[in-house]
Design a protein around this nucleic acid. Structure first.
Length: 504
RNA sequence: GGCCGCGUAGCUCAAUUGGGAGAGCAGCUGACUCUUAAUCAGCGGGUUGGGGGUUCGAGUCCCUCCGCGGUCACCA
């Protein structure tokens, strides 16, 4: 509800102008327009015209982004999806009424339509000589400053629509993100993968280590979880007989925010029957190599000070070797929690205390190896106890066939040879329950139905999940995940009057 | 959640050791028939994020709350 008393000077002025249009019998928000050309098409039509005398007649529409009133002639620019085109309003051409209406009632930010023949101004700029114009949507809020745009980061995220209208670079980021996702789909479709959709509302969450959001289903009178991963449903589809499936969608993890984390993030997960984690590495290399070529026309992408090279093959280093190289600690020679902790202390390394050997390995890796993994690198073979859904290596049951992909110091994919032994899977779930009982709130819950599915037989398979937002960061050279999410999670802004003395 | 920083007009930003809240853009009025960050003349516009305190006096110092950014913890 618009409270007329709360409007500021700008809003009152503009509302007043809308009312004056109505008084003249003109709807400031008409139902439709008959645009014939975008800005680029209008300019192109002029360039293709055999002579100025044959200049095309066009109807263009867009947001008024520049306005220069010079007495009996007025220049303006409108912006549409293709760019900008100049409009030329002239008293002699438009007549007193239409010209004055433009001069008095147009404001920056208004959406308008203009009709006329194209011509070139004295400076050679292709321009619409306006013979008729119409308001399509009167803007009541003024746009940001014309030269600097909107730069306050909070306002850019909170009022993304203003950010998008005033900062073309921001629009370009999201166009690139969209092209990237389309390229991913093309690649997967071309390789025989079926795109599917699985539940976001889940009675039992799983497929990752994270705390879920809880919601409530009134009809069923029960709580449901927002998924933290689609993994267990996608593997049920392998049981059902689909051999190659993938899903692109949101996961929800009840965590804090950072430059690399948003509580809802977009993932792409893919599962391939009769494949293993080596096939998934090949898939990852080919996928992103082709997406890079598709989106940017090159496999070399600038990222900060670095240039990331997506040309396959990418290095494949065992977790053990990676840690050994960076810290001098051989985790194979320190297979117990105490032995590993002692080795860490001996070398004077600083890592946070963790409850188990596996978590300690993970911590050691995150602290000393991960930040150095700039070029695309596969880290392979992880501890079984932190990988409850991956299959053991035949010669080493404490290690599983799992890899994570790192680019620019970020984890961007997680994959394994999928565990398909129902009895072993149940044991892994039970071990997770022990972790949960010991206070690990991110331990994987028991999923009896998933075990039941495996009991029908799931083909040996490779599976992989990609962090799409992080790839979007890489593809658009952004340091914060919020720059590649249209509406990142923010706190709700409180009205000051309400909660003055309630805070304690 | 911890630590550091920031919050001033619609937007972009100033304001000396604590001393009369300012500029540009935008807006309003007027001039101007080829401008393009148009130009020129004049005018208006503020809960300095909210609340409290110290002081003769607070945008500035202190406390507290809110929001945002960075960083740490966790993760794709």
């Amino acid at each position: 509800m618009v409270d007329l008393n709360q409007l500021n000077e700008y809003q009152r002025n503009r509302l007043e102008k809308a009312e004056r249009l109505r008084e003249q019998g003109i709807d400031p928000y008409p139902l439709r327009t008959q645009r014939t050309h975008t800005s680029r098409e209008a300019i192109q039509a002029l360039e293709e015209a055999p002579s100025e005398d044959d200049a095309p007649r066009v109807v263009v529409a867009g947001r008024l982004v520049a306005l220069r009133v010079m007495g009996k002639v007025t220049f303006a620019h409108i912006e549409d999806r293709d760019g900008r085109v100049q409009l030329f309003f002239q008293l002699n051409t438009l007549g007193e009424e239409a010209y004055t209406r433009a001069k008095k009632l147009l404001d920056l930010g208004d959406i308008i339509e203009a009709e006329g023949h194209m011509f070139r101004t004295r400076t050679g700029e292709p321009t619409v000589r306006v013979e008729a114009w119409r308001m399509l949507a009167k803007a009541l809020n003024p746009p940001p400053e014309k030269w600097h745009g909107l730069s306050d980061v909070e306002q850019r995220y909170r009022y993304r629509y203003v950010d998008l209208m005033s900062n073309p670079d921001v629009r370009r980021i999201f166009e690139t993100r969209s092209r990237m996702i389309r390229a991913v789909r093309r690649f997967m479709d071309a390789h025989g993968f079926l795109e599917v959709e699985t539940p976001i509302l889940q009675p039992v969450y799983g497929g990752a280590e994270a705390e879920p959001f809880v919601t409530h289903h009134n009809w069923a009178k029960r709580d449901l979880y927002l998924r933290i991963a689609p993994e267990l449903y996608l593997k049920r589809l392998l049981v059902g007989g689909f051999e190659r499936v993938y899903e692109i969608g949101k996961n929800f993890r009840n965590e804090g925010v950072s430059t690399k984390h948003n509580p809802e993030h977009t993932a792409m997960e893919a599962y391939q029957a009769y494949a293993d984690y080596n096939d998934m590495m090949n898939l990852a290399e080919q996928l992103w190599y082709h997406v890079a070529l598709d989106v940017h026309g090159t496999a070399q992408l600038p990222y900060g000070e670095q240039t990331l090279d997506f040309t396959p093959p990418w290095p494949r280093i065992t977790l053990r070797d990676a840690i050994l190289e960076r810290t001098g600690i051989d985790i194979d020679a320190a297979r117990t929690f105490d032995a590993l902790r002692d080795a860490i202390h001996e070398r004077g390394l600083r890592v946070d205390e963790k409850p188990t050997w596996g978590k300690l390995v993970d911590e050691l890796f995150s602290e000393y190896v991960e930040p150095h993994l700039i070029q695309p690198t596969f880290i392979i073979d992880y501890p079984r106890e932190i990988s409850p859904l991956a299959k053991q290596k035949p010669d080493d049951p404490d290690t599983v066939e799992r890899f994570e992909l790192f680019i620019a110091g970020m984890e961007v994919a997680n994959a394994f040879s999928e565990l398909n032994d129902p009895v072993e899977q149940e044991r892994r779930f039970e071990a997770q329950q022990a972790h949960r009982a010991a206070g690990d709130t991110e331990a994987h819950p028991m999923d009896e139905d998933f075990v039941n599915a495996l009991m029908y037989g799931m083909p040996p398979a490779g599976g992989i999940g990609f962090g799409i937002d992080r790839f979007a960061m890489i593809f658009t050279n952004q340091k914060s995940i919020r720059e590649v999410i249209l509406f990142p999670t923010l706190r709700e802004r409180q009205e000051h009057h309400e909660s003055e003395s309630e805070e304690t």
